[in-house]
Computed example of a mutant assay.
Amino acid sequence: MSTDASDGEAAGPPVNVTAKAAAEALSLLEGEGMDTDVSGLRLFVQQGGCAGLSYGMRFDDEPEEDDRVTEQHGLRIFIDPSSLNYIGGAELDYESGLQAAGFHVENPNVESECGCGESFRT
């Protein structure tokens, strides 16, 4: 498992996480009774959606052996190597509004997105 310092290495973290997204994820992790010193948010890419690929997120108790692990704003983020190829350099944010609230990935690698913004193509 490769690890980045919380400030990032010279190349920077694989994904930038905003303070708002980290605070929301940490609150959810703690609500699940998970140890935030070991557990983290897994960010991944999977086949699916009308554009071909979609984002996935879940909480994991610990990283897998080949995960890229970074910590930002106290939140540990786990990314598997194949997902990193699609989302390296992306930003994870949390948006809340009158119509919807949730995590949002701003990905500079995306060539096109479907109309609903739930899937993408690189």
Rank of each mutant, 00 (worst) to 15 (best):
R42Y: 12
E24N: 09
G48Q: 06
G89C: 02
G52Q: 11
A90M: 00
E65L: 09
Q72W: 08
D66Q: 09
E65M: 07
G89F: 01
G49V: 00
S27W: 06
G48C: 03
V45R: 04
I87Q: 02
E62H: 08
D35V: 14
M57V: 10
L92E: 01
E64I: 09
R58E: 14
V69Y: 02
D60W: 04
L53T: 06
M34D: 12
E71P: 06
L92S: 00
A25N: 02
L92V: 00
E64L: 13
G33H: 02
T36C: 14
G89R: 00
L75E: 06
R76E: 02
A22L: 02
L75M: 06
F78Q: 09
G88A: 13
L29P: 04
G74F: 10
G33K: 07
Q46W: 10
S83Q: 03
F78G: 04
E65V: 10
Q46M: 13
M34R: 15
A23T: 07
Y55Q: 05
R76L: 06
E30F: 10
G56H: 02
S82Q: 10
L41V: 08
P81D: 06
G88V: 15
Y94R: 04
D61H: 12
V69E: 04
P63Y: 09
A51K: 06
Q72H: 08
C50A: 15
G88S: 15
Y94C: 00
S27I: 04
E65I: 08
R58P: 01
V45E: 01
D37P: 01
F44Q: 15
D93S: 05
L26A: 07
L29G: 14
P81G: 03
L41Q: 03
A51N: 05
D80N: 04
S96D: 13
A21C: 03
L53F: 10
Y86R: 12
G48I: 04
V38G: 14
L92N: 01
I79E: 03
Q47M: 13
T36L: 10
E64C: 09
A25T: 09
R42K: 15
E71Q: 15
Q72F: 10
P81E: 02
G52F: 12
Y94Q: 05
I79M: 05
E30T: 15
R76F: 05
E65N: 08
E24S: 10
E71K: 11
Q46P: 07
R68L: 10
G49D: 03
Y55T: 12
P63F: 12
E95Q: 14
L53V: 08
H73W: 12
A51D: 01
P63I: 08
L28S: 13
R58Q: 12
S54H: 11
D35I: 09
Y55N: 07
E32K: 13
